[in-house]
Design a protein around this nucleic acid. Structure first.
Lengths: 233, 233
DNA sequence: TTCTATTGTTACAAATGGAGACAATAATAG
DNA sequence: CTATTATTGTCTCCATTTGTAACAATAGAA
C-alpha cells in the first residue's frame, strides 16, 4: 500500500473522531493501533480538496465502522504549535514499510478539527486503516496513553458531550432503537461519571414527553418486567 | 500596499472573529467594509506558519481594537464547499488596486475557524485593515447583509454565546470593571433577546457569590442610588 | 415637606428536584 | 398454589429554586 498522495487533500488540515459506544455499562471509544510501534491514536483523516468538511468526517466514520447516519457533532479545532511532532509521524510512516522524504506532506504541521460521534455499539463493523494493525474499543474510564495531543482531544470531547447531554437529548444515540429506562439511565451515568437517582431520572425523562412507551421486555429474571421505550421522531 | 504573500501563511485556513460590544442597551459587533464594493464582512485573518491558532486570533483582535487580554472563545469551524466564492474575493482584491493572478492563494477554498470575543465597548480603538475602508459597530438586532457565509457565522456565534451565558458567567466582560446590577441585567437581556425579571435576576446573581459590592453610584437622578459591583477575581 | 422613580429586600406561591415509601409483578422456591 | 425475591412504576413528602408581587428605603425634584 503506497503512502497517501498530497495532491488530493487539503494540506495542514485533518480531522479526528472521538467515536463513542456503550456496552456492558461502560462508555467506550474507538482507537487505532499503528503498525510496529503499538502507538494508539484516534481514528482521523484528511479532507479532499473538493469535499465538504462534514462529508470527510462521515466518510472516515463509514470506512472504520461501516455505518452511515451517525450522530455527529463538531466540538473543537486544535491549532497549537505543540501539535506538530514530525519525528513521531515519520516513525509511524516508516513502520508502514516506506522511505519517507523529509518534505513529505504528512510530516507538516496540522490543524485538526475534532468531532465526536455516538453510535450503537452492536451495529459496528470495525475496519483498520492503512497505517494501523487494528481498531478496537477502549473504556473511557481506563484509557491507555495516546499519541500526540489525542488525550486532550478525548477530554475535550467528553467535556462537550457532558455539557450537551441534557440540552441535546443525545443519550439515546448510544442505544438500540428500543431500550429500557434502566439502560438509558446507565448511559447517562456512564457519560456523566456519576450515579443518578432512579426515580428522579424516570420522572424527569417521562415528563419531557420525548419517549414513546412500547411493550414490556421479559428477560426471564424473577421480577417485574420493564417497558421498552424509543425516542419520538 | 501590496497583496499579502502566501509564503508566510497556512494555505486554505483562516479565522473569523465575531467581536461583541455593548453600548446604549444594545449588543453590537464589529464589521469591516471592503474598498469600493461596500461589502461588509467579519474581521478575520490568516494563521502564520509558525504561530499558534489562538495567537493569530489575538493578533488580529489587537490590530483591529488595540486591546490585549480579551475574552475569547472558539465556537465552530466552517468547512463546506459553498464557502468558496473566488469571484467575490477577486473583486475585493482588485478593488484594492492590484492585478490578481488566477492562482492567487486568497482565491482558494478556505476553512474558517470562528471565534467570538467580548470586550468593553469604551476601550476599543478601531483600525481598519488593508482591504477595508472602515471598521465600525453594528447592532446585532438589525445587521445588514454580510458577504460569504458571514451571516451564518454570526448566528452561530450568537447561539453559542447564549448557551454559554449562564454556564461561563461571561456577561461582565462586556462591561467596565464596575457596573450596576441594572447594567448587568441589560447585558443579559441584550444577549438573550428577552426581558428578565428584575428581582429574580438580582437574587440569582447575588446568590452565586461572584459579585463584590462597592460604593453607590450617584447619577443625579431623583431616586435611590444603585450599588456598583465588580466580578470577584 | 411631599412626590417620583428606582433600588434592595422580603413574602408568598408555583415549579422543580431529592429521597424514600409502596404497590405491582415476573420468575423461583417451597 | 402460595410465599419469596428482585426490580419497576408511581406516589408522597420535603427542601430548594424560581416566578410574582409587595414594601420599605432613598436621591433628587417640585
Amino acid at each position: 500500500m503506497p503512502l497517501p498522495d498530497s495532491s488530493q487533500y487539503i494540506p495542514h488540515l485533518a480531522f479526528d473522531s472521538v467515536i463513542f459506544g456503550f456496552s456492558k455499562g461502560k462508555l467506550k471509544i474507538l482507537l487505532m493501533e499503528y503498525h510496529a510501534t503499538g502507538w494508539l491514536a484516534l481514528p482521523g483523516g484528511f479532507v479532499k480538496k473538493d469535499e465538504d468538511l462534514e462529508n470527510a468526517v462521515k466518510r472516515g466514520l463509514f470506512e472504520r465502522t461501516g455505518l452511515t447516519d451517525i450522530y455527529l457533532e463538531q466540538f473543537h479545532t486544535f491549532g497549537s504549535m505543540e501539535r506538530a511532532q514530525p519525528n513521531y509521524m515519520k516513525t509511524i510512516l516508516q513502520a508502514n514499510g516506506h522511505p519517507v522524504p523529509d518534505d513529505y506532506w504528512m510530516l507538516d504541521r496540522f490543524f485538526s478539527i475534532g468531532y465526536y460521534a455516538l453510535l450503537d455499539y452492536e451495529k459496528v463493523n470495525l475496519t483498520p486503516d492503512a497505517l494501523s494493525d487494528s481498531i478496537a474499543w477502549y473504556e473511557v474510564e481506563t484509557l491507555p496513553e495516546l499519541i500526540f495531543d489525542h488525550d486532550k482531544i478525548v477530554q475535550k470531547a467528553l467535556q462537550t458531550l457532558r455539557e450537551n447531554l441534557d440540552r441535546k437529548l443525545i443519550g439515546g444515540n448510544l442505544l438500540p432503537e428500543r431500550f429500557t429506562m434502566n439502560e438509558l439511565q446507565s448511559v447517562y451515568e456512564a457519560i456523566l461519571g456519576e450515579k443518578l437517582r432512579r426515580t428522579s431520572f424516570q420522572r424527569k425523562l417521562l415528563s419531557l414527553n420525548i419517549l414513546e412507551r412500547h411493550e414490556k421486555l421479559y428477560t426471564g429474571k424473577s421480577h417485574k418486567a420493564p417497558y421498552l421505550y424509543s425516542f419520538k421522531r
